[in-house]
Simulated scan of single mutants.
Amino acid sequence: MVILETPRVFLIASWGSEAVISAFTDALYRGVPWEEAVKAQAPDIIIKRISAFYRQGHWSVFEFMGAQFLVECSRACHTQFIRHRMASYWSESQRYVDYTKREIRFVVPKGFPADLLKRAYEDYARLREGFRPEYARMILPNATAVLFAVQMNARELLLNFAPLRCAYAAQAEIRHVCWQMFAHAWRLWPNLARLVWEDLPSLHRDFCTKVPRGEDCRLYAIKDAEEKHGPLPETPWLSALVHG
């Protein structure tokens, strides 16, 4: 039995790029041959076009880039996650996985009583003596970890998921996951991610709910998530913003 405080996010693959979206602009609006359009994408042109699409609300173009992740978090976190329907999911099956043969994991905040989790696992093991995993799983708590693959386009990740799940009002665990994904998005699509970062408090009306007056809603949400679930993976831009 393993008890984890920190949910984990692994970037598996990505598709598209800000440069590709910028090249589409030349190919589709100006009739430039694709090979020439690709070669013409200087950094300043890309920044200008990504910013223009974002500011004009022409967000559908950001669906032409996206990423695949492996996420490990609690079943409670997973249940919230899959409410985001503009994404694809493939999840670990408690119906088939036998946790008497494979190490079971739990994801809980710091200070959660480990003895309760141990008792739940012991009950599961007793049930497995006479029943299949699909029956024994009924006794497992929401803290049980689930590994799942998720695929999101950049619009869904940065302009829907992040304003809802990176906010302080979201549960700390899924918020921790959200900021990990945001960090990956920053590396993949730096211009769009920077624009979203600047506007996050205004992208959803509840983003700053429950945040003390005078606090930066984004930094407050990050620090609280780290207090409950451990430090976010080292990310230079994030460290500079939060701890610098």
Rank of each mutant, 00 (worst) to 15 (best):
M152A: 12
M152F: 12
N153C: 10
N153G: 09
N153F: 08
N153R: 08
N153L: 09
A154V: 13
A154Q: 11
A154I: 06
A154R: 11
A154Y: 09
R155E: 13
R155I: 08
R155S: 11
E156F: 12
L157I: 06
L157T: 04
L158M: 13
L158G: 02
L158C: 11
L159S: 01
L159Q: 02
L159H: 03
L159C: 09
N160T: 14
N160R: 15
N160W: 12
N160D: 15
N160E: 15
N160F: 13
N160H: 14
F161S: 01
F161A: 03
F161K: 00
A162S: 12
A162R: 01
A162V: 14
A162Q: 07
P163G: 05
P163E: 04
P163H: 07
P163S: 06
R165L: 02
R165W: 00
R165T: 00
R165I: 00
C166N: 05
C166I: 06
A167N: 05
A167L: 05
A167H: 04
Y168L: 10
Y168V: 03
Y168M: 05
A169P: 00
A169F: 01
A170M: 06
Q171I: 05
A172I: 00
A172F: 00
A172L: 04
E173H: 00
I174L: 05
I174T: 06
I174F: 00
R175P: 02
R175H: 03
R175N: 06
R175G: 05
H176I: 02
V177C: 03
V177G: 00
V177Q: 00
W179I: 05
W179Q: 07
W179E: 01
Q180G: 03
Q180K: 02
Q180T: 02
Q180R: 03
Q180S: 04
Q180D: 01
M181V: 09
M181I: 13
F182S: 06
H184M: 13
A185M: 09
W186Y: 15
R187K: 15
R187A: 14
R187L: 14
R187S: 14
W189N: 11
W189I: 11
W189H: 14
W189Y: 15
P190K: 10
N191E: 15
N191L: 12
L192C: 02
L192G: 02
L192I: 04
L192D: 03
A193N: 08
A193S: 15
A193T: 14
R194S: 15
L195Q: 09
L195D: 10
V196Y: 10
W197A: 13
W197T: 10
